[in-house]
Write a protein that binds this DNA or RNA. Structure first.
Lengths: 163, 163
DNA sequence: CGATTTCCTGACCGTTCGTTCAGTATTGAT
DNA sequence: ATCAATACTGAACGAACGGTCAGGAAATCG
């Protein structure tokens, strides 16, 4: 809170004028990440297309949300459940993860995704890949969201190897 | 330190009998992760094989080290550089990342990896994928290291899609 | 203009947490 | 049995940190 206040050029008290406490501040920030991700999840869920296509769209849109709301998603992926607020965020995240797992399962059943890798593992690797962007991405114009989304999608679905 | 002491069933002072301080403890733990990863990096570097093969071997071996030393690698990937010890660890990690980037570059030049994705991005996605295992992996016998290494390698190099 | 709400400061409180240290068992070698 | 090294405990210290509160500018409105 002190660092944050210093960065804002105000005192800690000023922050407490606008937010009930550290937790409330965290909750708002996490909600900004989660609401974006939940929006694309809902959007994808209602789509009347094969599971693979919906999954790929979910991945691409998630990357776009991640780029657009990078600081908030970065915060989200670092949450470990050390407080009620964090546990609530994890619960919301898990709901999205479940959608991913479902789509992977459907896509495997439909014969569009390889069945030789455990679907549960596939789902986790898929979003591990997406979320790993927060480890190095900087919004400096060097990486456009759609380009990055395409790269992630290509690597995940088609692999790095040629031929 | 308090939590740690409690978990060990001793007082905090007992820890300070064996370690100079929190930083020294962290340094040893991080070194245990880094030495393992550096070992496979060195092993791969000396191999006289095509870059793709060396890269794939590096990925598989890294997954095995990650599984074998899970708590330590988990610690490592959470380090952000908030102290000298953490910055030293990051520097060592970056050296390994550079090897990955070099191998990806070579493999692309050799025509074995797709050139339509920025090699720097490819390298980061590749190890983002590997390191994302720390987010959910639990060593409970449900996931054998070689199986997991194969899954990661398959997804990264051949992709999820069939055909 | 005055009144009220909004925004913010500065000082302070209580807790947490890494660390220190004097003293005490425990172990092992001679 | 003696001595010394080793392995701790318990109490305390001090800095860091989240949070509170009385009061004062600054903006807003009738």
């Amino acid at each position: 809170m002190e660092d944050l206040a210093a960065r804002l050029g105000v005192t800690k008290s000023a922050i407490y004028h606008h937010f009930a406490g550290k937790d409330a501040l965290l909750a708002e920030a996490l909600d900004h990440a989660l609401s974006g991700l939940e929006a694309v999840a809902g959007q994808v869920r209602e789509l009347d297309r094969p599971a693979v296509e919906r999954l790929e769209l979910l991945v691409r849109r998630s990357v776009e949300v991640l780029v657009e709301r990078l600081p908030y998603v970065t915060l989200l992926v670092r949450v470990r459940g050390n407080s009620d607020v964090e546990r609530d965020a994890l619960a919301r995240r898990r709901r999205i993860d479940r959608l991913v797992a479902e789509l992977v399962g459907e896509a495997v059943s439909a014969g569009d995704l390889r069945p030789d890798v455990d679907p549960a593992v596939t789902a986790r690797l898929l979003f591990g890949l997406v979320n790993s962007l927060t480890e190095w991405l900087r919004v400096d114009g060097r990486h456009e969201a759609p380009t990055l989304a395409a790269a992630v999608s290509t690597v995940a679905f088609d692999g790095l190897r040629v031929g």
